[in-house]
Design a protein around this nucleic acid. Sequence first.
DNA 1: TGAATAGTGTCTTTCAGACAGTATTGG
DNA 2: CCAATACTGTCTGAAAGACACTATTCA
Lengths: 246, 246
Amino acid sequence: MKQKSPVVAPFNLQAIERPLVSVDVVIFTVLEGALHVLLVKRPDDPREPCPGMWALPGGFVDVEKDADLESCALRKLQQKTGVKTPYLEQVGSWGGSKRDPRAWSATHVYFALIPAPESLLQGSNDATWFPVEGQRVRVKLAFDHAMLLEAAVQRLRNKVEYTSLPAYLLPQEFTLSDLQRMYEVVLERPIEKSAFRTRVFAAGLVEEVDKVRAGPNRPAQLYRLAHPREIVYFPRTFSPRKSAED
Amino acid sequence: MKQKSPVVAPFNLQAIERPLVSVDVVIFTVLEGALHVLLVKRPDDPREPCPGMWALPGGFVDVEKDADLESCALRKLQQKTGVKTPYLEQVGSWGGSKRDPRAWSATHVYFALIPAPESLLQGSNDATWFPVEGQRVRVKLAFDHAMLLEAAVQRLRNKVEYTSLPAYLLPQEFTLSDLQRMYEVVLERPIEKSAFRTRVFAAGLVEEVDKVRAGPNRPAQLYRLAHPREIVYFPRTFSPRKSAED
DNA sequence: TGAATAGTGTCTTTCAGACAGTATTGG
DNA sequence: CCAATACTGTCTGAAAGACACTATTCA
């Protein structure tokens, strides 16, 4: 962790200037057939940086409350949504002298997938769902959050190509058509039905629930994740035509 | 970045306790047909944590010197190897109250790939190459560095399955057999020759150099990376038999 | 019966795996 | 010639793409 010169008196930890440390969470869900992300409005106080702008939910690490970065992310998520997320993954960290006018700062970006919420459909005044258009949202974001969001969207899209992640955008029980729709929404392209079903079954991703969903058509078999805690990796991406991107 | 309660006076940034912020670099190379990682010995001073133990090269971010996390990583790398790395990627960050006895700390882990060095073959006293055995090294590492190393090895192995990363373990000019050997060393399994060559050519990974390498056998065509700056993604992993792992 | 969605079957294409075969050098 | 490594060709099999087909409900 530390080696300044061959032999030194112990580093005076009080003497060095410490950066600000924060966590930001990109919370995704699918509403009305489109990928959405939850944003919060920064306070209007002009003494704050980026007053009144939209931003990713997040904030500084609290060394008293937060045992580690991930629990800090879960705390932020709980604050904003009141929901326990079925999936949380670190995207990466961005740190530098320029990204926050107040000080050298490092932020740690996580993304979460949650099923379409009922209560938060029209979020509170300062927390609102925005559709993801391309890799962005229509509003201008505070700090470098547009870049952080872009990285999270890219990671999500990329990983959806070869994993079971979209299942976490659905409630525990879902039909195969539901699941396929989640893939199509995130990837923004249609997927061939029979190939999709073959893959899902071959991977042992789901298990049947002893129920069907009725409708004005043939009822659909309901499934749930066979192993909800572990994400499944498919051996290939969905469209081998164009290569993946990290 | 900040929302404690609906309406507050601006956050007093001096008042909150800031964590320690560091960067650690996992420097990989291939020596004698095996993957190696560079480790440094911590000072023997008993007032330091983990005195005398082996650790990943790294250290605290210097808010004066380091414009951002990546340049901090490059600085650490330069200090230890004197080499400009052809490849550097962030693995992730680990932060918590327990990982450093001195304070709540967050470290940012990068991995670098460099061609087998000539001068550093037997490193200096406090920087030595250790073979990677499985996901670990034989010595016990300081702090949580064993975990960080494990994460880096896993990321490397995983990504080698479907990218051109191993090319950065070679000098600029190499034969296809050289390249294949790098894949085999990192993945610890043989790869089928003709499939390998087909993939490499289909991806447009390399271009011919107007030279051959002679030997006690048929001379081999030399190649270089067609686009050294961008890594290439293959449409499938090398062995579809077992799925990938992140 | 028809609209709508669920689910299956079949043919093609793509590409890795296996493995045998040819090519070109030095000794 | 032989050993050694470079390189190519051919067959097979696994899984995706395309697309047509059947199944089951409600109105």
